[in-house]
Simulated scan of single mutants.
Amino acid sequence: MRKPLLAALALVMFVSACGAVRESRLNPFNWFKRSETVAVAEVTPGAVQDPRPLAQQITALKVEPASGGAILRVTALPPTQGWWDAELVKRSPDENGARIYDFRMSPPKGQAGVNTPRSREITAAVFLTTRQLQEITSITVQAATNGMTSRR
């Protein structure tokens, strides 16, 4: 009688401790909240210029936990099909924990048609290490007409 009671009590205490981990910063699913749309920020003078134009519009931004850090995955919608060489280009050094990326991609080589928005979507991603994430409180990705931010 005594052993089952002790086992049940230990199980109850173990399961009750799981609630504290769910809201803690140790849980990778709590690292960043849902993304939100923000206004386009101005480019700082003296920043490295990339010849590729900015994506027209950002449609999705997700920070997904991964082994050793997180993956920042961003989807953009160009005006036509055929855009390529998409990349998230980091702007200047982080300021007060805010990291800003530009979503840049190369235009099509020739004439390109316009089809459904789903067929024009382009996704780019970058891996952020756990050490980088310790210093970051918000991540912003800029396009030509909008930007999106994910905060802790």
Rank of each mutant, 00 (worst) to 15 (best):
R2C: 11
R2A: 15
P4R: 02
L5S: 12
L5M: 15
L6R: 13
A7S: 09
A7C: 03
A7G: 13
A8H: 00
A8R: 00
L11A: 15
F14N: 14
C18T: 08
A20R: 01
A20D: 10
R22E: 09
E23T: 07
S24A: 12
L26S: 10
F29G: 13
N30Q: 14
N30M: 11
F32P: 14
K33R: 15
K33P: 13
R34C: 07
S35C: 05
S35Q: 09
V38L: 00
A39W: 06
A41S: 07
T44F: 10
P45Y: 04
A47Q: 03
A47C: 03
V48N: 03
V48K: 05
Q49D: 15
D50P: 04
D50H: 01
P51Y: 03
P51W: 02
P53N: 09
P53I: 02
P53E: 08
L54P: 12
A55D: 14
A55K: 05
Q57I: 06
Q57Y: 07
A60V: 09
L61A: 04
K62Y: 08
P65N: 00
P65V: 00
P65R: 06
S67D: 15
G68V: 03
G68P: 12
G68S: 08
A70T: 14
V74P: 03
V74W: 03
A76Q: 10
L77H: 06
L77T: 09
T80C: 02
T80H: 06
T80P: 03
T80N: 09
Q81H: 06
W83T: 10
W84F: 08
A86T: 13
L88G: 11
V89Y: 11
K90W: 04
R91E: 13
D94V: 14
D94N: 15
E95M: 12
N96D: 10
G97K: 10
G97R: 10
G97F: 06
A98K: 13
Y101P: 10
D102S: 14
D102F: 00
F103L: 12
M105I: 02
P107W: 07
K109I: 05
K109V: 11
K109F: 06
A112W: 06
G113R: 00
N115A: 07
N115E: 15
N115R: 14
T116M: 03
P117N: 15
P117H: 01
S119F: 07
S119N: 10
S119V: 01
T123V: 07
A125K: 15
L128H: 00
L128Q: 03
T129D: 01
T129I: 01
R131L: 09
L133E: 08
L133F: 00
Q134T: 13
Q134H: 01
I136G: 11
I136K: 10
T137F: 06
T140W: 13
V141D: 13
V141H: 12
Q142N: 01
Q142G: 04
Q142P: 05
A143R: 02
T145N: 12
M148V: 02
T149V: 07
R152L: 12
